[in-house]
Design a protein around this nucleic acid. Structure first.
Lengths: 241, 241
DNA sequence: AGACAATTAAATGTCTGACAAATGAAAAAT
DNA sequence: ATTTTTCATTTGTCAGACATTTAATTGTCT
């Protein structure tokens, strides 16, 4: 009854030990780990095993390795970008593997996104508002591909969450919204639906500009309902085919 | 234009290649990868290098390995629990390494948490409400340790987000709330502050019971303000010491 | 003394070959 | 028919070697 989730392999055990040292603060950012040969000695294993353990940690961006004299493995400073990239990978896979209905995903996405409206209306900057306007211009381009439209949509919503002026919130929201994009992409956007979406984007920017939380909330709610409608019509079209 | 951030090491490159195969659906859940020897042949590298690549993927829970005949590396089914555990590790480290102010963390936490109130009020079940009441009872225990109080607090808020009845939302919210707990733990809870918090928890449950979104929102807002006050007094006490 | 080039030591990255251990399937024995 | 044995396959680990990278050191020239 001791090894229910514990790793049966040495390399996993060593990785866990070092991971604990990092997460619990016994190893600090920038600290250099002993060389692979030393770690092998300390743990009584071969260098190959130690290397496998270090690669596990590197895969989680917990450490970075440098070659050459005075190189080695260093506790990595985890940047927002790295963390977000990992969160997106994990979440995207999770959503892709668990038969999430479009409606559930959509509901979650907009619920999360709405959590920043109050702060965004209060703190929005001209720089970010202009960024959002630029994305709207991009979205209005005729003959824009679906991928480009979606990419611009992500950029728009990312600017929206950045308006809240809270980096922690931006990290979580940007990660969740981006991870759900593949599900959102099940939709094919007609010219008609694009125009509808762009109008709502304009309403969001206008609401932020005059710091009117309610109108931003309303626009997001309509956008959510409209997106779900689009998703359902896609599913219906598939079912009858 | 292909290798701007790409890893210069073979094992990282091979890991990336296989990761793409999984993320982009060329390998499906349950599929077995070629044996290490075959992969080594295919990529023209040694088995040790392939193994390092596989360990990177295993660290992200993308694959699992089984020993023995007809064993090998299989594309893993990523469960909500595994994904959440990884998200918590990453987010906790991110917050710990980036000098986040208590106020920013708190603001983000409650903003995210509030995103589930409307759905929670609509869909709350008796089972979850009772779970929340049980946590309140636990929190009311005299001589409860600070750790136990915090753990029960996390359980309470987790039940709250589960009330929204959206598993995707639960995943994201539970992950964010849990990751911020270490920052919240900077606070030491006096008997007075515990009573205050428990009262607010009761208000939240009562609000959910009668499906009164506004009262739940209000209680969360007060909880946020109160938590920030507690955090500031801790900082002030430290500064004058 | 200072600037530049060559050397060197330390470390990771990779390869090779080997053996141990686990495991399911097939063959053999009962 | 059932149990046991054997066996091939595959991962886990080890030991030793060489290649490559890199910063510090040393040497040389001005």
């Amino acid at each position: 009854m001791k090894n229910q989730t514990a790793a049966p392999s040495l390399s996993a055990a060593i990785a866990d030990a070092i991971r604990s040292d990092i997460v619990e603060g016994r190893l600090l950012v920038g600290d250099r780990l002993p060389s692979e040969a030393e770690l092998a000695d300390q743990h009584g294993v071969s260098r190959a095993t130690v290397r496998e353990a270090l690669k596990r940690l590197a895969a989680q961006s917990l450490i970075r390795t440098e070659r050459g004299a005075f190189g080695g493995a260093f506790v990595n400073h985890l940047s927002y970008e790295e963390a977000r990239a990992q969160q997106v990978t994990t979440s995207t896979l999770l959503l892709g593997m668990n038969a999430i209905s479009f409606q559930v995903a959509c509901e979650a996405r907009y619920a999360l996104e709405r959590s920043c409206t109050a702060l965004a209306a209060e703190r929005r900057t001209d720089t970010l508002l202009n960024a959002m306007r630029n994305e709207i211009d991009t979205q209005s381009t005729p003959d824009l591909s679906d991928e480009a439209f979606c990419a611009s949509d992500v950029a728009f919503h990312r600017a929206l969450v950045d308006c809240a002026g809270n980096e922690v919130l931006s990290y979580h929201l940007a990660g969740s919204v981006e991870a759900m994009q593949p599900l959102m992409n099940m939709i094919t956007f007609t010219a008609r639906s694009r125009a509808e979406i762009i109008d709502l984007h304009r309403a969001i920017v206008a609401g932020l500009e005059i710091r009117d939380v309610a109108s931003v909330d309303r626009a997001l709610a309509i956008l959510e309902a409209y997106t779900i409608t689009l998703g359902q019509s896609v599913l219906k079209a598939r079912a009858t085919r």
